[in-house]
Amino acid sequence: MQATSKKVITRDEWEKKLNDVKIRKEDMNKLVMNFLVTEGYVDAAEKFRTESGTEHIDLATITDRMAVKKAVQSGNVEDAIEKVNDLNPEILDTNPQLFFHLQQQRLIELIRNGKIEEALEFAQEELAPRGEENQSFLEELERTVALLAFEDVKNSPVGDLLDISQRLKTASEVNAAILTSQSHEKDPKLPSLLRMLLWAQNQLDEKAAYPRITDLFTATLEDPFV
């Protein structure tokens, strides 16, 4: 027999203690939002914002992100690129595909505005070198330049590039990249807290017998083993 000086806490006593703990709903919402954003559930995060009124990250970065999105949506791609670089230059440095799509969008806007010479120059100087590095970039570049070859662009096989949905597509790509960059250096907090719970229980085990939770999926309190 092992002599024990462990304090025994019954289920009733423990539940009383649990009831004294107040966890704020806003904080739980934030925790869930943090999980959705950091794990890349961008759409779910947006829905959750609407349904629970929880903002992602802080308001300032949302505003910045929205400004970038809006710039792309309204065709000011140069402005958008500048804003992204202001936020974090690494976003474009580490994401060649996104950068290419933004440049492609810029080309589309030049063509839309009838700036043919400028468009040609831009395509040859800025986009062609990137196309050499990557086959799919090259195909997209050729498709975009083809816009110049049609008189009635809207009804051409590449007319979809001029569509507003192309802007939206690029905008949401930038948006996702910024979101990722803002959370990328951080892991979600929830798994850490779950580990902390198991750790805290292990620590308390040394001094007391009390109702534990071992099944994280059901959060069931188990009767203390005495």
Partner: peptide, 22 residues
Amino acid sequence: HSYLEKLLRQLTACFLEKRLLN
């Protein structure tokens, strides 16, 4: 209480109890 809340309450209570016994 959601499961999340139950887990967070347990976590908080464990810390408080450990401190109390310390």
